[in-house]
Design a protein around this nucleic acid. Structure first.
Length: 571
RNA sequence: GCCCCCGUAGCUCAGGGGAUAGAGCAGCGGUUUCCUAAACCGCGUGUCGCAGGUUCGAAUCCUGCCGGGGGCACCA
């Protein structure tokens, strides 16, 4: 990325100016290089001279003059300007920019990739909704954030594993089995009531019927506990088939479906329990076993930052094993975090959780620390919940209420591409409101189509070019000097920076913002610059422009693929 | 009571401590003798919730308050 080169260029200039005595000696601050909001301020700008003013005891403008005077010449720099009150504004050279078209074409699908991960292994675990029914719409945000983040980290040089954590044990599974039992018995004509707190959803009625059709009254004739166990297994199998299909409807494919129960079966839980017990992190009280997250004997370290300290202090004791001997979800989480970091050795474990689980974040980190693992290797990405409305009226969500909007319903109403894009345009920190009525109405005006349309238009240009017998062979990209051409290339060149920004902040929404800006630059170009023309005088420029739009098509496609939506050849 | 997120244009929301706070939608007006009008071009004074503080510089960081949402189980 040229961005990094420019930062180094400025850093060297500052050091050189100090060495030569233009500037006094002091530890130079970090060079922040930003993309100015105002295009008139260049492609890049740095306020570094402003922050050096006090250290140097000089006016920022004068510092900037000294620094700029010591900057080495580079072919990619067009102009360097000093602006009040002391900014250094840097423009890329038009010739260099034009030349990048060849570079983008050469990089093809890998254009936009950066090497931040350096091959380290990251796991993104997302959705992980309880396997008790179809994915609710609320899981859609989780799905899209997690999947896009996985795409982004892969593009940022991480080796990424995508995982769905299957909560196939615990309370909710028992309720699920009991609910299925009731629906199954009902399907066979028995008067079996749905248990209290049972799942009222219609999908279980259907599942009960399907099970009855396949197995007859087999489960009614066996011992009830045995039947519940068998129905839990059977129901889980069916639910997972549905969830897998729901995820695939959004283009999501997991590398692994990790069973919670397996953590108990394969000894992970036992090992973790023994270690924590031996190290004094567990205590017995009131017949239960508790995890002490705030053990006094653990001194705060100098390296512990405020946030960590607060996390540690706030974390109270939590039950790991109930007085009846059954483990809680925390027991599973302990085994799971160990499984991720220690046993499977991921360098970075990312969990995607709804904000309603934010209280558990300190817990998981505390467990990691108690196990002697670096809690910084755990990142929990929280997203605020989506409020669903229909015609301005609030739609209550949740599996226990009758009215539950499924992710599948929304996808069928507004399409997978629009669903993904829409859920991705807002920052995860922002709670969003979605009116289904409005979303259906507006789906045809969804910005995703604006971006896809750009891709389709380019495909169309190539179809026409072929018809006219025009090719890009021998095109000379140095002819690309028109402002609209330059602007388009400059936008294309930003993709690696956007990927880096997203990977750095885990904020995938920058990607959709960028996609729209990129498409906008293309559409403007398209309006102003003819690509394929019958005018013979236009032939050379036409070849160059064909190269340009092919590069633009590549960048649009790469961006769309990161977002996880299709890049259509026609619309 | 404690904890987390949000409060920016009519609506939905961007805004990585910097220069005149932006986009989409909605609204008004204009653009098509050859590559898709799902497009392009033009039109925007908003107490950046309020009050302090830090800083050369705050929508952005800190503190308090107000408002909205969520969480504080031997549920997950």
């Amino acid at each position: 990325m040229k961005r990094d080169d420019i930062i180094q260029l400025i850093e060297r200039a500052i050091k050189k100016a100090q060495k030569k005595g233009d500037l006094p000696k002091f530890d130079p601050p970090e060079v922040v290089l930003e993309r100015p909001k105002d295009e008139g301020h260049g492609d890049y700008a740095t306020p570094v001279c402003l922050s050096m003013a006090r250290l140097a005891r000089m006016a920022p403008i004068q510092i900037a003059e000294k620094v700029v005077a010591r900057m080495e010449h580079a072919d990619y720099i067009g102009s360097v300007e000093i602006a009040h009150p002391g900014f250094i504004n840097i423009n890329l050279s038009d010739a260099w920019v034009a030349q990048q078209v060849e570079d983008i074409l050469e990089q093809g699908q890998s254009f936009g990739h950066v090497d931040m991960g350096q091959g380290r292994r990251a796991q993104v675990e997302y959705i992980s909704a309880n396997p008790t029914g179809p994915l609710p719409f609320g899981s859609g945000r989780n799905a899209v954030l997690g999947d896009t983040l996985a795409n982004l980290l892969a593009a940022a040089g991480w080796q990424v594993q995508r995982e769905y954590y299957v909560n196939d044990t615990g309370n909710q599974m028992e309720v699920f089995a009991a609910s299925l039992y009731a629906r199954y018995a009902q399907a066979l004509g028995h008067d079996e009531p749905l248990p209290e707190n049972g799942y009222p959803g219609h999908y279980l009625v259907e599942m009960g019927e399907a099970v009855a059709t396949q197995f007859g009254d087999r489960f009614l004739s066996m011992d009830r506990d045995e039947a519940l166990k068998a129905l839990q297994t059977e129901g889980l199998k069916r639910t997972l088939v549905g969830i897998r299909a729901d995820a695939e409807a959004l283009g999501i494919h997991f590398d692994q479906w990790k069973s919670e129960q397996s953590l108990y079966d394969d000894g992970a839980y036992g090992a973790v329990f023994n270690q924590l017990s031996a190290d004094g992190w567990l205590t017995h009280r009131e017949g239960a076993i508790w995890f002490k997250g705030d053990r006094e004997s653990e001194p705060s370290t100098d390296t512990e930052d405020k946030e960590q300290e607060r996390e540690r202090q706030e974390d109270k004791e939590n039950v790991v094993v109930r007085s009846d001997g059954r483990p809680t979800y925390l027991a599973s989480d302990m085994a799971y975090v160990w499984d991720k970091l220690a046993r499977r050795g991921f360098d970075w474990a990312i969990y995607v959780w709804g904000a309603d689980h934010h209280g558990h974040v300190p817990r998981v980190k505390a467990v990691a620390r108690a196990l002697g693992l670096d809690a910084d290797r755990v990142t929990i990405l929280l997203y605020q919940l989506v409020t669903l409305k229909r015609g301005g009226k609030l739609v209550r969500m949740g599996k226990r209420t009758g009215e539950m909007i499924t992710l599948r319903e929304v996808i069928e109403e507004i399409g997978a591409d629009a669903t993904r894009f829409m859920l991705l345009t807002r920052s995860a920190d922002s709670q969003m409101e979605l009116d289904l009525t409005l979303a259906v109405q507006q789906s045809s005006e969804n910005p995703v189509y604006y971006v896809q349309y750009g891709h389709a238009r380019i495909a169309s240009i190539f179809r026409y070019a072929q018809e006219q017998g025009v090719s890009l062979e021998g095109g000379d990209v140095s002819l690309l000097t028109h402002p609209a051409e330059q602007e388009l290339i400059r936008q294309m060149l930003r993709l690696p920076e956007i990927v880096a920004l997203c990977a750095d902040t885990l904020g995938s929404h920058h990607l959709t913002q960028y996609a729209q800006r990129l498409a906008s630059a293309f559409h403007s170009f398209y309006k102003e610059c003819r690509v394929v023309s019958s005018d013979p005088a236009h032939a050379e420029l036409g070849k160059a422009r064909l190269k340009l739009v092919l590069a633009a098509k590549t960048v649009l496609a790469n961006t769309l693929h990161l977002i996880g939506v299709s890049a259509p050849e026609s619309m």
